[in-house]
Design a protein around this nucleic acid. Structure first.
Length: 1119
RNA sequence: AGGCCAGUGGCUCAGCUUGGUUAGCGCGCACGGCUGAUAACCGUGAGGUCCUGGGUUCGAAUCCCAGCUGGCCUACCA
């Protein structure tokens, strides 16, 4: 086998298809895993994407990070577990299935469809989505265990989840409690904080007057015995039927104001906000009846002061504590009367203190309905108010809501406002727009209801959770130290029960007689305890409704003769965040199976987007502390979001979503992968810009070109690196530039390894990008071009092959984790074909570099040399002196030793690339011509009329001599013949400061500077240079013609040139050189009949006219 | 409303930890050049209130404070 010539064009579609097929055909993935089986373990856990049906660029990015990182770890020899995970339960899928089945509410599910059918549909839907998304991930080249993923509806997974809840119960962390929670009236279920979105919504905003039961002000202040009202603001009028108290802040000042013959009480700070200034001043121009001197009527301005309201008294909020008010909707909600009458409920309809009352908005009095708000609920518990909630789970008023009974809460607003108005206690009514919580799936505005729910008492394990966070390595640091810490620090108890169907049933059975609880931790335990015959298989049994039918026998009446109670399952399912929170051990089926768990738990690495701070990072931490008293992960990379090109988030409603398959179609998975890891720091958000993909595409085209270039010649010569001994000079000679590229490639591998270990993908990709473009393509290939063109198989040419081969081989290994397809393709041809120790796939190669061949000094020197060559090119360009023409001499001026060493060491590189015959290094360029001129600033005042003569003297004398004299004597004397009779001369002494120098390059010298100094290029054309220059001009033309004819690189030709004798003489010495360069069998000078050009009849001959400098020539080639 | 992150030529980004030459790379643009890797390459040029405003300092893109814009998260705004 030998290296084959590569396809000329990089075709991502063909390559990726072929490589992916080969992976499957040859079972490369599983073989790679087997290869590393005995290596050190590196455990990873895949955050399960939700089975929504399609991936987006964010999920693509997520999996690409995981895949690249894990492929890298695999090449480093680690044994990995790459199990994909799927999040399948919950409201999103239930909601989709409801839409498909055209179902409006829970009642229809239970009555029309049946829970069993509904759950089966959800499962089917989840499976279908899972498969679709799996294919999309596979298209990206993601290597995971797609055939045996963990899926949250798997009975074995679910029982691990049950075990966790059993553990929570054993630790007294699982509690049932009546609390006010956020509720979706459409889905008819509790929602956790994580399930609430926020949108701008319009709501009524009303100010309501609550009349005091007894007057508060005495006669002195309120002689007219006006009615007194507490002023209250609310945006949820529908909660007023459940109003049981009003809260004030004891430390605020409150004012009694008299307005429109009644007294309103509200926070002093808010009086002006609501009622405006106390006194309204209007100015009126009024006729005085008098006339002024001109006979015009005199007017005077009269101020009219209108008092809008009077502040009668100001008191502290604390003074109101215990004062009662008349509940305004007693007639509409008669239930409220019974609270008033109940002697145990002394605080009902009174003013109570509450620290949550603020002055930013409202009136300083907050309407309090313990059944409809979390704060209100706390107040209610503290002051023994009934938790009155006349609203049912569908959001409709119950019979307790009497007049409004049956109305949906939001619809009742209107009636309630009308009732308040007719009672004359509605002070103001407006509409406001504000952020309001909505259900994450159906976008229905949430309401707050008092219900019994199950909770995990996170507040009790919070301290442990906080200390566990510190043990984790966070990338970036602030992800854990700031963001996540703050979120956990503010954590409330976790509402884990949902009144739905498609989820993990809460494994809690409760005795109907005694209320005793039993929490089940496995399917086996379920079956053991069941007193029913079980016909369903495990798959069905673990879900609703089958599990609902299972009952246990309680031991509550064992001591008495009564029959024992029956235990029934509580009907709720779990919050889906628990599902994924237990993934760490549930995916390993712990505790039913222990071997895998002991091997892989806890996890070395996880990575998810920054939204998972409140999500998976949190749920795993909580579940981990409950189950094992520790956090389940050791290192976390928190990555960003993919935004559109304007930095806005991608959303269907904005229509700016980019599909990953569209990108793959146009650019391929490799380019997308590289782009996503290159575009930004992984933890920043990523602006997806189509045009930037072109940059990456260009880079891969260039890589491909280098590969094509290499294989073209290597295949021609049958090059196989193993056939040669580098030490043996006869076999292969490495020049300094070959050693340099090998050093660079190894340095790259070393540096990229460091970056990937830190998850600094952006730095890794940038270094690779630089290596491909600058080091390999633009520099090394340019350096070796001449050597490759040599016909024979000499050691010097093989050295170039070896350098090129080694660089590409190392490069594709470094690039393999990031762009696995193109690297596999190149590897197959370049390595697998010719190396005896090659692997079945590049992904089975070891990631390694050879520290011994890294030569940092050489790399630095090459940088200097590149600068020097660039500078010389620039200088030539300014002089319009073509690179094709050699120059006799290049002078490098510097005071840096490194520059001299670099030039000394790599002189041949400079001579070749700058096309120079001789290089001189020096501290100072000797051939500069200096021109002296007077320093007008110092000499002007001193010399006055003598200035002209001094100027003339300096201009006429040799500047270099003046400079030398000044240097040795620190002065020069200017002798001026004043032309007077006595013939005496005037001598003017000039100091160093008095003379300035311009420098002037000698003719035929151009200069340019580089970082370490200057270069001077001698452009004088000698006969020898003319000869070589013209020869090269001729070569260029002939090569151009070869290309026109699309000749094979190794094809030999006959050349005839018609030219003047003069030119013939000039290039005569170079015939051999020309012959060699253009692969000519023979070159002859003769006259050519231009008219003989006839492509059709004489296709082997090709004739073209040229003009070189001022010469007209005709060239004919024939192959 | 609060927390965290980002804001640098027309565009994508680096530099900021540890303040110090003329703020850098790539794309794009204009002009010139090269031509056996050629859908490549080389040179020159135009283009910057380093988001805004304060402060610390001899000196701020960099440190501090406040604000604006965008992203994510949170919130009981009655």
């Amino acid at each position: 086998m030998s290296i084959k010539e590569a396809e000329k064009l990089y075709n991502h579609k063909n390559i990726e298809k072929k490589v992916q097929e080969d992976w499957i055909k040859n079972q490369i993935y599983s073989k790679t895993n087997q290869l590393r089986e005995k290596g050190p373990k590196y455990s990873f856990s895949d955050g399960p994407p939700y089975c929504s049906g399609e991936i987006h660029l964010g999920t693509a990015w997520n999996k690409i990070i995981k895949d690249s990182y894990l492929r890298f770890k695999s090449m480093k020899g680690f044994s990995l577990r790459r199990q994909a995970g799927w999040d399948t339960h919950g409201l999103p899928i239930e909601h989709k299935v409801e839409q498909i089945l055209n179902i409006k509410n829970k009642q229809q599910i239970e009555e029309n469809i049946g829970i069993a059918n509904f759950v089966a549909k959800c499962k089917e839907f989840a499976l279908k989505n899972k498969d679709a998304m799996t294919n999309q991930f596979k298209d990206l080249g993601i290597w995971m265990d797609w055939d045996k993923p963990y899926v949250t509806f798997d009975p074995k997974y679910m029982e691990s989840c049950w075990w966790t809840l059993k553990k929570a119960h054993a630790k007294d962390l699982l509690i049932k409690d009546k609390r006010v929670i956020s509720w979706c009236p459409r889905c008819e279920t509790a929602l956790a904080a994580a399930e609430i979105d926020h949108e701008d919504k319009e709501d009524p905003s009303i100010h309501v007057k609550f009349e005091t039961s007894k007057p508060i002000l005495n006669n002195d202040v309120n002689p007219k015995k006006l009615k007194e009202y507490f002023l209250v603001w609310t945006t949820t009028p529908w909660t007023l039927p459940a109003n049981l108290a009003i809260c004030m802040n004891p430390i605020f000042d409150y004012s009694f104001i008299e307005i429109d013959n009644e007294i309103i009480i509200l926070a002093s700070n808010l009086v002006e906000t609501i009622f405006g200034p106390e006194v309204k001043i209007t100015q009126i121009k009024k006729d005085t009846g008098k006339l002024d001197e001109d006979g015009k009527p005199i007017k005077e301005i009269e101020e009219k002061r209108e008092t809008i309201y009077n502040i009668l008294k100001i008191v502290k909020g604390a003074d109101f504590e215990g004062k009662s008010y008349i509940y305004p909707l007693l007639d509409q909600v008669p239930e409220q009367k019974s609270f008033d009458k109940d002697e145990n409920l002394v605080n009902v309809h009174t003013i109570l203190p509450g620290d949550h009352v603020e002055l930013g908005e409202g009136t300083g009095f907050v309407h309090t309905a313990p059944g409809h708000g979390p704060d209100d609920f706390e107040i209610g518990k503290k002051y023994n108010l009934p938790i009155f909630c006349p609203v049912n789970e569908e959001g409709n008023f119950t019979n307790e809501g009497e007049k409004y009974s049956g109305d949906f809460v939001k619809d009742a607003n209107h009636n309630i406002i009308n009732d308040l108005r007719s009672k004359g206690i509605l002070l103001r009514e407006e509409i406001i727009k504000h952020r309001y919580g909505v259900c994450w799936r159906c976008k229905t505005p949430i309401i707050y209801l008092a219900t019994e729910q199950w909770f995990l008492k996170v507040t009790e394990i919070k301290d442990k959770m906080l200390s566990e966070i510190k043990k984790v390595e966070w990338i970036p640091k602030w992800a854990g130290e700031g963001r996540f810490h703050d979120w956990v620090d503010n954590a409330k108890d976790w509402t884990i029960s949902r009144q739905r169907y498609w989820g993990i049933p809460i494994p809690v059975w409760m005795c109907e007689d005694c209320g005793k609880l039993k929490v089940i931790g496995s399917v086996e335990e379920l079956k053991e305890n069941s007193i029913n015959e079980i016909t369903a298989n495990d798959e069905e049994l673990v879900h609703r409704p089958y599990i609902d039918e299972i009952t246990f026998k309680c031991d509550c009446n064992e001591s008495s003769n009564d029959s024992d109670g029956i235990m029934k399952r509580i009907p709720d399912v779990l919050d889906v965040w628990i599902d994924s929170g237990v993934a760490g051990w549930a995916a390993l089926y712990y505790p039913q199976e222990k071997e895998m768990f002991n091997k892989w738990y806890p996890y070395d690495f996880i990575t998810e987007g920054h939204d998972q701070t409140r999500g998976w990072f949190y749920s795993q931490l909580g579940a981990g502390v409950i189950s094992f008293d520790e956090v389940p992960y050791k290192k976390v990379l928190m990555h960003g979001f993919v935004l559109d090109e304007f930095g806005k988030k991608m959303s269907k409603s904005l229509g700016n979503v980019v599909q990953s398959e569209d990108v793959i179609e146009q650019y391929g998975a490799d380019i997308l992968r590289f782009y996503l890891l290159w575009a930004t720091k992984p933890w920043d958000d990523l602006k997806f810009v189509w045009n930037e993909l072109n940059n990456i595409k260009k880079m891969f085209n260039i890589l491909w070109n280098v590969y094509v270039f290499s294989t073209t010649y290597m295949s021609l010569d049958g090059f196989t690196p193993e056939n040669y001994e580098i030490e043996d000079k006869k076999s292969i000679i490495l020049r300094d530039e070959d050693k340099w590229i090998i050093s660079r490639a190894n340095s790259l591998s070393k540096e990229v390894e460091e970056d990937l270990n830190k998850a600094y993908f952006h730095q890794a990709t940038r270094k690779i990008n630089y290596f491909i473009l600058e080091d390999l393509s633009r520099w090394y290939v340019r350096l070796i071009r001449g050597r490759i063109w040599v016909k024979k198989n000499d050691p010097d040419k093989l050295g170039a092959y070896f350098g090129l081969y080694t660089a590409i081989e190392i490069l594709i290994k470094v690039l393999a984790p990031i762009t696995p397809h193109i690297c596999e393709e190149i590897y197959e041809n370049l390595v697998k074909n010719v190396k005896s120790d090659s692997k079945l796939s590049i992904h089975m190669e070891d990631w390694e570099y050879d520290q011994n061949v890294i030569d940092e000094d050489l790399e630095k020197e090459m940088d200097v040399v590149r600068d020097i060559i660039e500078a010389s090119t620039r200088a030539r360009d300014m002089a319009k002196y073509k690179l094709r023409w050699p120059v006799s001499e290049l002078t490098v001026v510097s005071d840096d030793n490194l520059v001299f060493e670099a030039v000394n060491h790599l002189e041949s590189v400079i001579m070749d690339q700058a096309n120079v015959k001789k290089i001189i290094t020096t501290n100072e360029f000797e051939n500069l011509k200096f021109i002296a001129k007077p320093n007008l600033k110092t000499l002007g005042p001193r010399l006055r009329q003598d200035m002209g003569n001094v100027k003339k003297f300096l201009a006429e004398n040799d500047g270099n001599q003046i400079k030398a004299d000044l240097k040795s004597n620190n002065k020069i004397d200017v002798i001026i013949n004043e032309g007077n009779d006595n013939g005496s001369d005037k001598i003017i002494e000039l100091s160093r400061d008095d003379v300035l120098f311009d420098n002037e390059l000698p003719d035929d010298v151009v200069s340019s500077d580089f970082k370490g100094g200057n270069v001077f290029v001698n452009t004088q054309i000698t006969p020898e240079i003319l000869s070589e220059g013209m020869a090269r001009e001729l070569i260029r033309r002939i090569q151009d013609m070869r290309k026109d004819k699309d000749l094979d690189v190794e094809a030999n030709i006959d050349v005839v040139v018609q030219t003047s004798d003069k030119l013939k003489d000039i290039i005569y010495d170079k015939i051999k050189f020309i012959t060699n360069e253009v692969r000519a069998k023979n070159i002859s000078f003769d006259s050519i009949d231009v008219n003989s050009i006839n492509d059709e009849n004489n296709s082997s001959k090709y004739i073209k006219e040229w003009k070189i400098e001022d010469e007209n020539i005709i060239i004919q080639i024939e192959n």
